[in-house]
Amino acid sequence: MSAREGTVRTAVITGASSGIGAATARALHAAGYRVALLARRGDRIDALAAELGDDAIAIVADVTDRDSLVAAAQRVQDELGGADVLVNNAGIMLLGPFASERREDYRAMVETNLLGAITATEVFLGQLEDGGGDLVNLSSVAGRTARATNGVYAATKWGMNGWSESLRQALLPDVRVTLIEPGVVDTELPTHITDDATRQAVQESYDAARVKPEEIAEVIAFVLSRPRHLVINEVLLRPADQA
């Protein structure tokens, strides 16, 4: 039973400055949640918090910096009463041929996509357990398959999948764990790719994407709306025409 049962729930969303993170913040706020928007780009989350109005706060935090997450958790506790939901959405997709000169891209993906989610969860876990919480981890179709140019990105998502299953077992019944695995979604992920040829090819497929971040956010909101005795542990979503 939630220690805060009967009260308004609070959702913390990492990577809330754009894409699925921003859409999830809007969807959960519309569903009655207080929301804490965490991201590095303060101007974007400030604007989103202003758009949402009451019960939304913007906190500049980097998931690769534990101290910033600890400070964020303290603000969430002090200003919103603690986190009931953590959405681990922050991530980067630096695709390209495997090569030594791209080693900084590989480190950045591991530190953001996998270690960042692990650290955010470790920092907020006490609040989630206190509130009978929910943990939502954003993975990818790349957590189930790999291609020649996405090896390290896929490795971070395969890691997210395995870690999420371990957490599911370790945290039940106090914290529900859900893994969301989208395919191509209309987001800015390709713009960060440092390999020019890969970025162009990936951008073309994303430009044609029909699945919008709001549609993934709707799924997350639905998962969280289920009664406490039911947990949807894994959701795989693809565009209908994605092979």
Score class of each variant (00 low, 15 high):
R41I: 07
R210A: 15
I193E: 01
A170T: 06
E129D: 12
I92E: 01
A72K: 09
S164N: 10
G143I: 10
A23K: 13
G6C: 02
W158C: 07
K212M: 15
E204M: 11
G159F: 04
A154D: 06
A36Q: 11
V235D: 09
A221Q: 11
I20K: 13
Y33G: 02
V177F: 12
R199H: 01
A31M: 02
A154P: 00
I20C: 07
F222Y: 15
G132S: 02
A209R: 14
V235C: 02
I193K: 04
L237R: 11
D130L: 05
T156W: 11
Q242R: 08
D46H: 09
T119F: 03
I193Q: 02
L28Q: 13
A39P: 08
S2V: 02
G19C: 06
G6R: 10
D78Q: 15
A209T: 12
D195A: 01
W163P: 02
A72H: 04
I232A: 05
L128P: 00
V223Y: 07
R40V: 01
E122T: 05
Q242P: 03
S2R: 11
A22Y: 10
D207W: 09
A243C: 03
I45E: 07
V12Q: 09
A209V: 07
D196M: 01
A240Q: 15
G133H: 12
A83F: 03
D78L: 12
T194C: 00
E104T: 04
V141E: 14
E165N: 08
R103K: 05
A221H: 03
E51G: 11
V123I: 02
T198G: 01
W163A: 07
D130C: 01
R210N: 12
A71K: 12
V85I: 10
S139M: 08
S2G: 10
D196N: 04
L69D: 07
A154F: 02
S139E: 11
E5P: 00
R41T: 06
T112P: 02
D54Y: 00
E122G: 01
L125T: 07
D67N: 08
G116V: 08
E111V: 05
Q169A: 13
M1D: 04
Q74E: 14
G133W: 06
Q200M: 07
A23Q: 08
L172Y: 12
R144L: 06
E181L: 14
V235H: 08
G131E: 03
A30E: 15
E218C: 05
P239W: 14
V70P: 00
L138E: 12
A30Q: 14
L179V: 09
L28N: 13
A50Q: 14
M93E: 14
S205H: 15
L138N: 06
I57T: 10
Q242M: 11
L94K: 04
E104P: 00
L52K: 04
N88D: 08
R26L: 06
M109W: 02
A148R: 04
L114T: 05
D78W: 02
T194R: 03
T156V: 09
M160F: 10
L125P: 00
E188M: 07
R199G: 00
